[in-house]
Amino acid sequence: MFWLLAVFAYLLGSLPFAILISRLAGGPDPRTFGSGNPGASNMLRGAGKRLAILTLLGDLTKGLIPVVLANLAGFKAEQQAWIGLAAVIGHMYPLYFHFRGGKGVATAAGVLLGVYPGAALISISSWLLVLLLTRTSSVAALIATPLCLPLMAWQLPKALMPLAILTALILWRHRQNMRDLWAGKERRF
Protein backbone atom coordinates (compact mmCIF):
# COMPACT_ATOMS: atom_id res chain seq x y z
CA MET A 1 0.00 0.00 0.00
CA PHE A 2 2.87 2.39 0.81
CA TRP A 3 4.40 2.03 -2.64
CA LEU A 4 1.02 2.39 -4.37
CA LEU A 5 0.42 5.64 -2.53
CA ALA A 6 3.95 6.84 -3.33
CA VAL A 7 3.44 6.16 -7.06
CA PHE A 8 0.00 7.83 -6.91
CA ALA A 9 1.58 10.83 -5.15
CA TYR A 10 4.27 11.15 -7.82
CA LEU A 11 1.74 10.92 -10.67
CA LEU A 12 -0.59 13.41 -8.98
CA GLY A 13 2.37 15.69 -8.29
CA SER A 14 3.26 15.49 -11.98
CA LEU A 15 0.00 17.20 -12.96
CA PRO A 16 1.06 20.73 -13.97
CA PHE A 17 -1.84 22.83 -12.73
CA ALA A 18 -0.35 26.07 -14.11
CA ILE A 19 -0.21 24.61 -17.61
CA LEU A 20 -3.62 22.92 -17.41
CA ILE A 21 -5.36 25.98 -15.96
CA SER A 22 -3.71 28.25 -18.49
CA ARG A 23 -4.85 26.00 -21.36
CA LEU A 24 -8.40 25.79 -20.00
CA ALA A 25 -8.54 29.59 -19.71
CA GLY A 26 -7.17 30.01 -23.24
CA GLY A 27 -4.00 31.67 -21.97
CA PRO A 28 -0.39 31.17 -22.92
CA ASP A 29 1.75 28.35 -21.58
CA PRO A 30 3.37 29.66 -18.36
CA ARG A 31 6.69 28.21 -19.48
CA THR A 32 6.74 30.86 -22.24
CA PHE A 33 6.55 34.00 -20.09
CA GLY A 34 8.13 35.51 -17.00
CA SER A 35 10.48 33.10 -15.26
CA GLY A 36 9.25 30.18 -17.38
CA ASN A 37 8.33 28.34 -14.19
CA PRO A 38 4.95 26.55 -14.15
CA GLY A 39 3.98 27.80 -10.69
CA ALA A 40 1.67 30.24 -8.96
CA SER A 41 4.19 33.12 -8.75
CA ASN A 42 4.83 33.10 -12.47
CA MET A 43 1.10 32.74 -13.15
CA LEU A 44 0.50 35.85 -11.03
CA ARG A 45 3.04 37.78 -13.10
CA GLY A 46 1.78 36.66 -16.49
CA ALA A 47 -1.76 35.33 -16.24
CA GLY A 48 -3.37 37.30 -13.42
CA LYS A 49 -4.54 36.84 -9.88
CA ARG A 50 -7.44 34.44 -10.53
CA LEU A 51 -5.37 31.89 -12.45
CA ALA A 52 -2.51 32.24 -9.96
CA ILE A 53 -4.86 31.45 -7.05
CA LEU A 54 -6.26 28.43 -8.89
CA THR A 55 -2.71 27.23 -9.61
CA LEU A 56 -1.71 27.72 -5.98
CA LEU A 57 -4.74 25.75 -4.74
CA GLY A 58 -4.14 22.97 -7.27
CA ASP A 59 -0.44 22.66 -6.41
CA LEU A 60 -1.13 22.78 -2.67
CA THR A 61 -3.87 20.15 -2.95
CA LYS A 62 -1.69 17.71 -4.88
CA GLY A 63 0.70 17.72 -1.93
CA LEU A 64 -2.06 17.43 0.66
CA ILE A 65 -4.21 14.65 -0.88
CA PRO A 66 -1.58 11.85 -0.82
CA VAL A 67 -0.64 12.70 2.79
CA VAL A 68 -4.29 12.66 3.87
CA LEU A 69 -4.80 9.31 2.12
CA ALA A 70 -1.66 7.94 3.82
CA ASN A 71 -3.01 9.13 7.17
CA LEU A 72 -6.37 7.48 6.50
CA ALA A 73 -4.52 4.27 5.58
CA GLY A 74 -2.91 4.33 9.03
CA PHE A 75 0.61 5.29 8.02
CA LYS A 76 2.79 7.10 10.54
CA ALA A 77 3.99 10.69 10.07
CA GLU A 78 7.35 9.53 8.69
CA GLN A 79 5.67 7.42 6.00
CA GLN A 80 3.25 10.24 5.21
CA ALA A 81 6.21 12.57 4.75
CA TRP A 82 7.91 10.15 2.33
CA ILE A 83 4.68 9.88 0.32
CA GLY A 84 4.37 13.68 0.34
CA LEU A 85 7.96 13.95 -0.88
CA ALA A 86 6.97 11.79 -3.86
CA ALA A 87 4.29 14.38 -4.74
CA VAL A 88 6.82 17.22 -4.56
CA ILE A 89 9.28 15.28 -6.72
CA GLY A 90 6.44 14.76 -9.20
CA HIS A 91 5.84 18.51 -9.29
CA MET A 92 9.53 19.27 -9.80
CA TYR A 93 10.22 16.45 -12.24
CA PRO A 94 6.86 15.64 -13.89
CA LEU A 95 6.54 12.49 -15.92
CA TYR A 96 4.13 14.23 -18.32
CA PHE A 97 6.45 17.12 -19.29
CA HIS A 98 9.90 15.60 -19.81
CA PHE A 99 10.77 15.95 -16.11
CA ARG A 100 10.79 19.78 -16.31
CA GLY A 101 8.47 21.18 -13.67
CA GLY A 102 8.12 23.79 -10.99
CA LYS A 103 9.98 24.56 -7.80
CA GLY A 104 7.67 22.71 -5.43
CA VAL A 105 6.93 25.37 -2.80
CA ALA A 106 3.11 25.20 -2.90
CA THR A 107 3.11 21.40 -3.17
CA ALA A 108 5.48 21.22 -0.19
CA ALA A 109 3.12 23.49 1.75
CA GLY A 110 0.35 20.98 1.06
CA VAL A 111 2.54 18.16 2.32
CA LEU A 112 3.35 20.10 5.50
CA LEU A 113 -0.34 20.88 6.04
CA GLY A 114 -1.04 17.17 6.01
CA VAL A 115 1.93 15.97 8.05
CA TYR A 116 2.15 18.76 10.61
CA PRO A 117 -0.29 21.69 10.25
CA GLY A 118 1.45 23.78 12.93
CA ALA A 119 4.74 23.80 11.03
CA ALA A 120 2.87 24.51 7.79
CA LEU A 121 1.12 27.53 9.28
CA ILE A 122 4.42 28.93 10.58
CA SER A 123 6.06 28.35 7.20
CA ILE A 124 3.16 29.84 5.20
CA SER A 125 2.90 32.84 7.55
CA SER A 126 6.62 33.53 7.27
CA TRP A 127 6.42 33.17 3.48
CA LEU A 128 3.65 35.78 3.34
CA LEU A 129 5.46 38.14 5.70
CA VAL A 130 8.74 37.94 3.78
CA LEU A 131 6.89 38.36 0.47
CA LEU A 132 5.16 41.49 1.78
CA LEU A 133 8.45 42.91 3.07
CA THR A 134 10.67 42.06 0.11
CA ARG A 135 8.15 41.68 -2.74
CA THR A 136 10.31 38.75 -3.89
CA SER A 137 8.75 35.29 -4.00
CA SER A 138 12.05 33.42 -4.14
CA VAL A 139 13.35 35.13 -0.98
CA ALA A 140 10.11 34.20 0.78
CA ALA A 141 10.48 30.56 -0.31
CA LEU A 142 14.16 30.42 0.64
CA ILE A 143 13.39 31.65 4.14
CA ALA A 144 10.06 29.91 4.81
CA THR A 145 10.95 26.44 3.55
CA PRO A 146 13.77 25.61 5.99
CA LEU A 147 12.12 27.53 8.84
CA CYS A 148 9.86 24.62 9.81
CA LEU A 149 12.68 22.05 10.06
CA PRO A 150 13.69 22.78 13.68
CA LEU A 151 10.05 22.46 14.72
CA MET A 152 9.77 19.18 12.82
CA ALA A 153 12.95 17.88 14.46
CA TRP A 154 11.48 18.61 17.85
CA GLN A 155 7.91 17.36 17.28
CA LEU A 156 8.28 14.64 14.62
CA PRO A 157 11.93 13.59 14.54
CA LYS A 158 11.26 10.49 12.42
CA ALA A 159 9.69 12.64 9.67
CA LEU A 160 12.70 14.95 9.59
CA MET A 161 14.67 13.01 6.94
CA PRO A 162 12.06 13.17 4.13
CA LEU A 163 11.26 16.79 5.00
CA ALA A 164 14.95 17.72 5.03
CA ILE A 165 15.28 16.16 1.56
CA LEU A 166 12.20 18.11 0.46
CA THR A 167 13.81 21.32 1.73
CA ALA A 168 17.11 20.55 0.02
CA LEU A 169 15.30 19.94 -3.28
CA ILE A 170 13.44 23.25 -3.02
CA LEU A 171 16.69 25.09 -2.28
CA TRP A 172 18.32 23.30 -5.23
CA ARG A 173 15.46 24.30 -7.55
CA HIS A 174 15.97 27.93 -6.45
CA ARG A 175 19.70 27.99 -7.24
CA GLN A 176 19.24 30.33 -10.23
CA ASN A 177 17.11 32.60 -8.06
CA MET A 178 19.95 32.72 -5.53
CA ARG A 179 22.39 33.68 -8.29
CA ASP A 180 19.99 36.37 -9.49
CA LEU A 181 19.54 37.66 -5.94
CA TRP A 182 23.30 37.86 -5.50
CA ALA A 183 23.62 39.75 -8.81
CA GLY A 184 20.68 42.05 -8.00
CA LYS A 185 18.61 40.78 -10.96
CA GLU A 186 15.86 38.80 -9.18
CA ARG A 187 12.27 39.53 -10.26
CA ARG A 188 10.05 41.35 -7.78
CA PHE A 189 6.31 41.91 -7.51
Rank of each mutant, 00 (worst) to 15 (best):
T145I: 02
V88H: 07
W182A: 05
G39H: 04
V67M: 12
P117F: 02
L169N: 00
Y96N: 11
A153M: 12
A87P: 01
R100F: 09
G90S: 12
T167C: 08
M43W: 13
I21L: 15
L132W: 10
V115C: 01
G104C: 03
R31W: 01
K185D: 06
A70S: 15
P94Y: 14
F17P: 02
I19R: 03
A159W: 01
L57I: 05
N71G: 14
P146E: 14
N42F: 04
W172E: 08
R45M: 14
V115W: 09
I89W: 04
L151W: 10
F97V: 09
F33I: 14
S126N: 12
P157N: 14
S126H: 09
V130G: 01
L160A: 05
L5F: 06
Q80A: 06
W3T: 10
K158A: 15
M161R: 14
G118T: 14
V130L: 04
G46P: 11
G102R: 03
A70L: 11
A153C: 02
L15I: 12
E78T: 10
F17D: 08
K158I: 06
G101N: 02
G102V: 01
T61P: 00
A47Q: 01
I65M: 03
I143M: 13
L132D: 00
L56M: 12
C148A: 15
G184C: 02
F75I: 15
G46L: 05
L11P: 01
P162E: 09
A144G: 13
G48S: 14
R179Q: 12
M1K: 07
L147S: 04
F99H: 10
L113E: 07
F17C: 06
F75D: 07
R45C: 09
N42E: 04
